[in-house]
Structures are given as structure tokens and as C-alpha cells.
């Protein structure tokens, strides 16, 4: 469960997030959508403590994240762009993360097999393709069985086979009552995975609700058109 209260964030004079309040529920996939530069990544990064808030607060499982880092034991994060120290291997990064985290149930075998990663994990990162690095990121994020999973355009670099396996994986995690936050520009993906949609525009929440309620409200049958309508309305 993630609770955001009156969150504002500025970069220089640019106001990226404007007084945002929302709560993200356990056992649901919440998709954050919006055009480029609408503040999706900044919103995600404020939950992770990667950006410092100008005002407002973020609580994860009832704990205020300010000056706290242990709450990240419960979070798995797949960033938009994956890049690692080029001379280290996937296995080395995995064991580094193992040493940093506490209280986890580690299970990586299934993901490694499905993504065919076992050989790739022994190669240094400079020899891996972008898609493979992305798979390693997914592995690191999910192998520790975190309660909260945060995905920033996770399927952007994946081939169709891996991408569909990844979606199955997310649905399995949802069954396990995880809190999942996802950003994506692929509407079919959101329609497949998400329960809740948060539509961000210029740093403000313009819509929050289920996909069905969004479709009903906009009288459209396709999510893509409904979102486009929301954008045009502004």
C-alpha cells in the first residue's frame, strides 16, 4: 500500500508534480499513464526516494519514507533504461543486491529459465544487448519476492515472446496480492494488466479509476481512444 499526500516537485522552476494526492492499493495493478513529460517517472521516483520532494509526503506501508531507506527492502524496481557497471556480470550484480537486502525469499530459477538468462548472467554487461539488460533488471526486481513492484515502461526493449511471458509474470504477482505500479505507453498492455488507471497531465491527476469506469465515462470502446479523449479535453 502506497499513500501519497499533497506531493509537489519542481526541477529548477519547472513544476513537474503539482500537489498530488493518491493511494495505491494492495493486490492491484495501478497503471500511470500520460504523455511524455507529464511526470510519470518523477512520480515513481518519488516513491523510491530517488528524487527529493519539495513538499508533501509519501508513505509506504504506513512508514513515511523521508530519511528512511530500509522500506526499499519491500520494493522491486525495473527502471526505464537499464545500465550496469560494464565489467561486472549479472550474477555479480545479483549477489551484490543479495548482500544489500534483508528479509527476502529468493527465487530466481523460473525467471532465469523463461528468459533464457543462465548463460547471459555470466557475461559482463558490456557484452549484453539492451533487451537482455532489461531482462536482468526484471530478474533483480522480482527475484527477491518484494511486496511492492514498480515498473517504468518495462516491456519497451523486450521481444514479443519475453514481453508476453513478462505479462504472465505480473499477473501471477498480482494473484499473490502484491502492490504493482506500472507506467507504459502501450495501451493494450495496460488493458491486459491494469485494474486502476491514473492519468497524469502536466503534473496533475486528471483521472483516477478503473478501466471500465474510464470507458463508460468517455463512451469509447477502446482504451487508447478514451485516453486520447482525456488528453484532447484539456
Amino acid at each position: 500500500m502506497v499513500e501519497i499526500n499533497k506531493l509537489s516537485k519542481k526541477y529548477n522552476k519547472n513544476e513537474i508534480l503539482k500537489n498530488i494526492s493518491l493511494s495505491i492499493n494492495k493486490g492491484e495493478v495501478t497503471a500511470v499513464v500520460g504523455p511524455n513529460g507529464s511526470g510519470k517517472t518523477t512520480l515513481i521516483k518519488s516513491i523510491l526516494g530517488l528524487v527529493k520532494l519539495n513538499s508533501g509526503s509519501v508513505e509506504v506501508d504506513g512508514i513515511n519514507i523521508k530519511n528512511n531507506f530500509t522500506y526499499k527492502n519491500n520494493i522491486g524496481y525495473v527502471p526505464q533504461v537499464a545500465r550496469y557497471p560494464e565489467n561486472l556480470t549479472g550474477n555479480e550484480i545479483l549477489s551484490l543486491v543479495k548482500e544489500l537486502r534483508t528479509n527476502y525469499e529468493f527465487s530466481s530459477q523460473k525467471i532465469i529459465e523463461s528468459f533464457k538468462l543462465s548463460e547471459e548472467l555470466n557475461k559482463p554487461f558490456k557484452n549484453l544487448s539492451g533487451g537482455t539488460k532489461q531482462k536482468v533488471s526484471i530478474l533483480i526486481a522480482l527475484a527477491f519476492n518484494p511486496k511492492i513492484i514498480i515498473l517504468d515502461e518495462p516491456t519497451a526493449g523486450l521481444d514479443p515472446v519475453s514481453s508476453s511471458y513478462f505479462k504472465d509474470l505480473i499477473l501471477e504477482e498480482k494473484e499473490k496480492k502484491k502492490t504493482i505500479i506500472l507506467t507504459s505507453h502501450i495501451m493494450s498492455e495496460i488493458q491486459e494488466l491494469a485494474d486502476e488507471i491514473i492519468f497524469l497531465l502536466d503534473g496533475e491527476i486528471k483521472f483516477k479509476g478503473t478501466i471500465t469506469s474510464l470507458l463508460e465515462e468517455s463512451k469509447e470502446s477502446k482504451l487508447e481512444r478514451a485516453i486520447a479523449q482525456l488528453m484532447l479535453r484539456e
Binding site: L48, G49, L50, F69, T70, Y71, K72, N73, I75, Y77, P79, V81, A82, R83, Y84, P85, V97, L100, R101, T102, S137, I140, I150
Partner: peptide, 11 residues
């Protein structure tokens, strides 16, 4: 990007 990834870990 590595710093980003590391900061999403409990450190």
C-alpha cells in the same frame, strides 16, 4: 543509471 538502480535498493 546504476546509481538509480542502487538507490532503489535498501542502501
Amino acid at each position: 543509471e546504476f546509481i538509480e538502480m542502487m538507490l532503489s535498493q535498501p542502501i
